[in-house]
Structure formats: C-alpha cells, structure tokens
Measured scan of single mutants.
Amino acid sequence: DETGKFLVLSLYDYQEKSPREVTMKKGDILTLLNSTNKDWWKVEVNGRQGFVPAAYVKFL
C-alpha cells in the first residue's frame, strides 16, 4: 500500500471551491493520498484532506 508514501509539490496557489477540495499555496509540500483520478488528486495539506487539480502539483 503506497498511500501517504509520496510527496508532491504545489506549483500554483489553489483556492478550494467546494468542501471536498483543499486550499494550497505555491511551494507547499503535500502528502499524496490518492492519484487514481487523472484530473483530481487527493492530498493532505496542513492537517486537512481533500482534492486538488492534478495539473497543479508534481512529484518530488
């Protein structure tokens, strides 16, 4: 199980638009929880879990 094993870097600021999403700032290091959807990845940032656009992050 690779859940929570990968870190990704936020390339852009992102403001959550729904309760299922999370806000991140450019340069944030996020824990990747799920990347099965090619468009939206589930991450943990600042103690919160939610989705961010996959195009806004990259693997470290």
Rank of each mutant, 00 (worst) to 15 (best):
D1H: 15
D1R: 10
D1F: 14
E2L: 14
E2I: 14
E2F: 11
E2K: 15
E2T: 15
E2C: 15
E2N: 14
T3Y: 13
T3H: 14
T3W: 13
T3R: 12
G4Y: 13
G4R: 15
G4C: 15
G4V: 13
G4N: 13
K5A: 11
K5W: 11
K5L: 12
F6D: 09
F6T: 14
L7P: 03
L7V: 08
V8Q: 01
V8A: 09
V8T: 03
V8L: 15
V8P: 00
V8D: 00
L9M: 13
L9Y: 11
L9C: 11
L9F: 09
L9P: 00
L9N: 01
S10H: 04
S10W: 07
S10C: 15
L11R: 05
L11P: 01
L11T: 06
Y12A: 13
Y12D: 07
Y12M: 14
Y12I: 11
Y12Q: 14
D13G: 05
D13A: 06
D13Q: 03
D13S: 08
D13E: 05
Y14R: 02
Y14I: 02
Y14T: 02
Y14H: 04
Y14C: 06
Y14G: 01
Q15H: 12
Q15K: 12
Q15G: 07
Q15W: 12
Q15F: 14
E16D: 04
E16R: 12
K17P: 04
K17C: 10
K17G: 08
K17E: 08
S18R: 08
P19M: 09
P19V: 09
P19S: 11
P19G: 09
P19Y: 10
P19C: 10
P19I: 10
P19K: 10
R20F: 14
R20H: 14
R20N: 14
R20P: 05
R20G: 15
R20W: 15
E21P: 04
E21W: 05
E21C: 07
E21N: 05
E21Y: 06
E21Q: 11
E21K: 05
E21G: 12
V22G: 01
V22I: 14
V22E: 01
V22N: 02
V22D: 00
V22C: 07
V22L: 14
T23M: 04
T23E: 03
T23P: 06
T23D: 03
T23G: 09
M24L: 08
M24I: 14
M24T: 04
M24Q: 01
M24W: 02
M24D: 00
K25T: 09
K25L: 08
K25F: 09
K25R: 12
K25Y: 09
K25C: 09
K25W: 08
K26E: 07
K26L: 05
K26W: 04
K26R: 11
K26M: 08
K26Q: 10
K26V: 08
K26I: 07
K26C: 08
K26A: 13
G27I: 01
G27E: 03
G27V: 01
G27Y: 05
G27R: 02
D28S: 07
D28T: 08
D28C: 08
D28N: 06
I29Y: 06
I29C: 07
I29F: 06
I29S: 03
L30Y: 08
L30V: 08
L30N: 01
L30I: 08
L30Q: 01
L30D: 01
T31S: 08
T31Q: 11
T31P: 08
L32Q: 00
L32T: 01
L32A: 02
L32M: 04
L32G: 02
L33H: 04
N34Y: 06
N34W: 07
N34G: 07
S35T: 11
S35D: 11
S35H: 11
S35Y: 11
S35P: 07
S35V: 09
T36M: 11
T36R: 11
T36A: 12
T36V: 10
N37W: 07
N37I: 05
N37D: 15
N37R: 09
N37Q: 09
N37V: 04
N37T: 06
N37H: 11
K38D: 10
K38Y: 07
K38C: 11
D39K: 13
W40L: 03
W40V: 02
W40E: 03
W40I: 02
W40F: 07
W41A: 04
W41M: 04
W41S: 02
W41R: 00
W41G: 00
W41V: 09
W41Y: 10
K42V: 13
K42H: 11
K42T: 06
K42G: 04
K42Y: 15
K42N: 06
K42M: 15
V43H: 00
V43G: 00
V43S: 00
E44G: 05
E44V: 08
E44S: 10
E44H: 04
V45S: 10
V45I: 15
V45G: 06
N46H: 11
N46C: 08
N46E: 09
N46F: 07
G47R: 04
G47D: 07
G47A: 04
G47Y: 04
G47F: 04
G47S: 05
G47L: 04
R48M: 08
R48A: 07
R48I: 08
Q49S: 12
Q49I: 15
G50C: 03
G50L: 03
G50Q: 01
G50T: 01
G50N: 01
G50H: 01
G50F: 04
G50M: 03
F51H: 04
F51P: 00
F51V: 06
F51M: 08
V52E: 01
V52C: 03
V52W: 02
V52G: 00
P53F: 05
P53N: 03
P53Y: 04
P53C: 06
P53D: 02
P53W: 05
A54D: 01
A54M: 04
A54V: 05
A54R: 11
A54G: 03
A54I: 04
A55N: 12
A55G: 11
A55L: 10
A55Q: 12
A55C: 14
Y56D: 02
Y56I: 06
Y56P: 00
Y56L: 13
Y56R: 04
Y56V: 06
Y56M: 13
V57P: 00
V57Q: 00
V57T: 03
V57E: 00
V57C: 10
V57W: 02
K58T: 15
K58E: 12
K58Q: 14
K58H: 09
F59L: 15
F59G: 06
F59Y: 10
F59T: 09
F59C: 15
L60D: 04
L60K: 05
